[in-house]
Structure formats: structure tokens, C-alpha cells
Design a protein around this nucleic acid. Structure first.
Length: 434
RNA sequence: GUGGGCGUAGCUCAGCUGGUAGAGCUCCGGAUUGUGACUCCGGCGGUCGUGGGUUCAAGUCCCAUCGUCCACCCCA
């Protein structure tokens, strides 16, 4: 009998690390709310055609990475490989873009059929942000400054770099593309095989090659910056000025191309050198043409997506995870004899009500006092609250410090609640480090 | 899809030129009839990923296959 296991590339998040996820999601949600962004909740399944029309037929994502299948009626549906397409679809479908602007976010799993490796999974979690109806560089800057704030809140700001580029208008890009292909064609045989293929599919990507000879050639190639249309150029310069004013450092990287067809003008990536081959932690850009392409009125749009596994890997790699995440239980309440169970239950309820935020775990499962204390220790709690015959008779609770020393005091109800409130108040939960 | 590393107890791993499967941690019990974390004693726990081959004998060698990790491609 084959051992049962998860589908390849679809990892479980076990209890020991799920707290990190809650921490990350809370940090992000707090900031999004503070900037006036509203959540939109989207289905995980969409009609296959949506992605083919938006992401691009010839992209790897659509060509070979989609989880597509026929549902019971025979329609082809696809587990979303990214969030933007579904978001635009929902906004159009419900009239959210009619004469109005939107600042939206969503979170959840995305699916791509790729070989898993570090920082890459077949099911992975993203937080995505999309803005509609703003055409100037102000909103581009807003998104970037907001992400910069998140990196600070998470303690990873020093480990990420902002890289910027402009892809210009679709027309300018098409002109440049032809120029680049014409320039490169004489060198075709000198290029590596991957780049020869790119020459047909996405020549701009050749700038990304890691092959030395290809890089030598590309160092001489014509640059897109010289083909940028005036309006895109002004937009890009406006964005850079705003980022400088906001003291957000960046580097202009002409090699940033983005794999999805719908991008235009501003594209950006937050990258790190701490994660091996998957250095991009957050990426996005402008996609002014997409709404119209999907059948809506022409609507300017910008957005980004953040890979949460990568952000967490990064936080872990540089030791940015707050130590408080280690403690999941504040106090462990145990009775020494199960005759005291009804009283113990009542006390647990009373303490949880009296001390907001208190994480109190009550002993279950019987056993000798020794075994109960052992469980108290294993729970990770700071304090053990012990309820024995003597305490019940006296109306007190024995409070034993489990982490430091081990001294034990006997407290009445008022002193106990005071102690627990102080414990909760002193607990840094990672929300105050922005 | 391509290349390489690795699959032995729940976890981390050792196991020599082939010779009857080990440690640490975890967990449970005892030393300790109301006190954890330290110490000591005992216990639970493995068809050595799977299938085939070579051999008197395979965890060890060979082949295949699956899984996993890393890298390429591509991407969050």
C-alpha cells in the first residue's frame, strides 16, 4: 500500500509555522487598511479563456503551467495561475470600474504546474493589489511606497532592493521589438539555444540570459530606453521623482521585462539575494490595456503581487521573525485532580473574559500531577495556573513561572487577573514595529 | 520538460572493501502518592521509498521506478 501524501508541490503548513502566516497576513492587512484599500474575494477557478486572453497565449504560464480541466458540463476551467485576470473580470462583471476608481486587494492560493524548488510551489500564496482608473505616476508611487512600508513592518527592508523599468506603450514596444530582432538576427548562431527560442517568442527576455556569450552580445544591443515614447518617458520620470521625494531607493533595471503580456509602462520588482534562484519577492506594474482587452472601456490600471512563501523564507533567512511567534500559549491551567474539573472550566472561562487577549490552554486528559506539569511545560506557556484541593478550599490559584526560575506564588482572584493582564500587556505581538 | 544531490524509527542522522538494524531528540512509564524544565533507569517505535537483478548472504553493489531537494527554463 502506497503511503498517502500530498500532491506534489502543494505543501502543508504545520502548526509550528502557521503562526508566521498569521503574523504576515496581519501585517499586510493592517497596512492595506491604513492606506484605504478594500478587499475583494475572488474564486479560485475561472474559465480557461480568461487567462488565455489576458496573460497571453504564448507565455509559459498559459502554454504549459495551467491546471486546466473540463468540469462536469464539459467547460474548460482553470485554477487561477495569477490574480489580476480574475480581479479585472470581477470588476467588469459588477460594474466596479464605471466612472469610478478602485483600490483593491485580495489574498489566496495560486496554481502553476512547474517543477517545485526553493521558493516555488505548485500551489502558492499571494497577496495581490490592483488599482483602477488612475493614469498618472502618483498611484504607481503609492503602491511602491506602501510595499516599502510593509518591508519595514516585517523587518526585511534591508534585504530587498527595488528595481524599476518602463515598458513604454505597446506601440513603442512593438517598434523596439522589431529593431531588437533585426539587430540580433546576425548573431543568432552565437546565442544560446534558450535565447534563440526567445528571439521568436519574447526577444526582450534575452537581456535576462545568464549565459556569458549571450550577455556579451546583449551588452551592445540597442536599449529600449532610447525607444521609449514621450508620454511613457514623462510618466517614468514622474514616478522616479516621487520615489526620490519619498526617500525610497531604487535602481533602474532595463532587463526587467515581466512574463505576462498585459504589462505596459511601469514595471517593478522587489528582489533579494537571500533566496537562491527565486529572488523576486514582489512584482507588478501597469497594465493600461488589459481592461479594454477583456471587453471593458479603456481603463488605466496598476497592481502587484507578493509571493508570501518567499517573503516568509526571507524573513526566516535574515532572522526577522519576531521571537514572540514562538509562544503560542500564555498560560496553562491545570487541576491536580479531576474532581476539580467543573471549577477549572469555570475559572478558565472567567479568566478569558477578564483578560482580553489571554491565550489560556486548559489541561485535558487526566494523569498524575507530574504529567500535568510536564504538559504545561511542553505547551510553551509562560505560567502554569495550578488548581488543587488546597487552592480550591482557599479560593486561590497557585501560579508557577515555567520559563524563568520556577518560583511559585499563591494568588487570590484579583491578584491573578492583574498578573495575567500584565503578562498580556507585556507581550509584544509584532504589531508595533512599523 | 532537462540536469544533479538525497530517500534508514514521528524528527535529525550514523551504518567501513556486502556478514543477522543503531544513536540522539520526541513520546510514555518509573526513581518523585501535590509540581515541569536538569539527572538516572526502563519502554514504545523500522517490510532500510518501491520493484527487479547479482550473491551463500544486500541498508550497502547493479537496473528500473516513485518521492524529495537544488538548479536550468520560467516565475510570486
Amino acid at each position: 500500500m502506497k503511503k498517502i501524501q500530498s500532491v506534489r508541490g502543494m505543501p502543508d503548513v504545520l502548526p509550528g509555522v502557521s503562526g508566521r502566516w498569521l503574523w504576515l497576513e496581519r501585517q499586510a492587512q493592517d497596512i492595506l487598511a491604513a492606506w484605504g484599500y478594500r478587499q475583494i474575494r475572488l474564486p479560485v477557478l475561472e474559465h480557461t479563456g480568461l487567462f488565455a486572453r489576458s496573460v497571453g497565449e504564448s507565455t509559459d504560464i498559459v502554454a504549459k503551467e495551467m491546471y486546466s480541466f473540463a468540469d462536469r458540463s464539459g467547460d474548460s476551467v482553470t485554477l487561477r495561475p495569477e490574480g489580476t485576470a480574475g480581479c479585472v473580470r470581477a470588476c467588469e462583471e459588477h460594474g466596479l470600474l464605471f466612472n469610478q476608481t478602485q483600490r483593491l486587494w485580495y489574498a489566496g492560493p495560486m496554481f502553476r504546474y512547474e517543477r517545485p524548488q526553493k521558493g516555488r510551489y505548485r500551489q502558492f500564496e499571494q497577496i495581490g493589489v490592483e488599482c483602477f482608473g488612475f493614469e498618472g505616476p502618483d498611484i504607481d508611487a503609492e503602491l511602491i511606497v506602501m510595499t516599502a512600508q510593509l518591508w519595514r513592518a516585517l523587518g526585511v527592508a534591508d534585504a530587498v532592493t527595488l528595481e524599476l523599468n518602463s515598458l513604454g506603450s505597446p506601440e513603442a514596444r512593438a517598434v523596439y521589438r522589431e529593431a531588437l530582432v533585426a539587430w540580433l538576427t546576425p548573431y543568432r548562431d552565437d546565442l544560446d539555444t534558450d535565447s534563440q527560442r526567445r528571439l521568436l517568442q519574447n526577444p526582450l527576455r534575452i537581456f535576462d540570459s545568464k549565459v556569458p556569450r549571450t550577455r556579451e552580445i546583449m551588452a551592445e544591443a540597442p536599449l529600449f530606453a532610447d525607444h521609449l515614447d514621450d508620454a511613457s518617458k514623462a510618466h517614468f520620470e514622474g514616478l522616479q521623482a516621487l520615489l526620490e521625494a519619498a526617500a525610497v531607493p531604487f535602481v533602474v533595471n532595463p532587463r526587467i521585462v515581466r512574463g505576462l503580456d498585459y504589462y505596459s509602462r511601469t514595471v517593478f520588482e522587489w528582489t533579494t539575494d537571500r533566496l537562491g534562484a527565486q529572488g523576486t519577492v514582489c512584482a507588478g506594474g501597469r497594465y493600461d490595456g488589459l481592461v479594454a482587452q477583456l471587453g471593458g472601456r479603456p481603463t488605466p490600471a496598476v497592481g502587484f503581487a507578493m509571493g508570501l512563501e518567499r517573503v516568509l523564507l526571507l524573513a526566516e533567512a535574515i532572522g526577522a521573525l519576531p521571537a514572540e511567534l514562538e509562544r503560542e500559549v500564555d498560560v496553562y491551567l491545570l487541576n491536580l485532580d479531576d474532581d476539580q474539573l467543573p471549577l477549572t472550566l469555570a475559572l478558565a472561562r472567567e479568566l478569558r473574559a477578564a483578560v482580553p487577549g489571554l491565550r489560556l490552554q486548559m489541561h485535558c486528559g487526566g494523569g498524575k500531577p507530574r504529567a500535568r506539569l510536564k504538559r504545561a511545560d511542553g505547551s510553551g506557556a509562560e505560567l502554569a495556573l495550578i488548581l488543587g484541593e488546597e487552592e480550591v478550599a482557599a479560593g486561590t490559584v497557585a501560579v508557577k513561572a515555567l520559563r524563568a526560575g520556577g518560583e511559585q506564588r499563591t494568588l487570590d482572584r484579583t491578584a491573578l487577573i492583574e498578573t495575567l493582564r500584565a503578562l498580556v500587556a507585556g507581550r509584544a505581538d509584532g504589531r508595533d514595529c512599523k
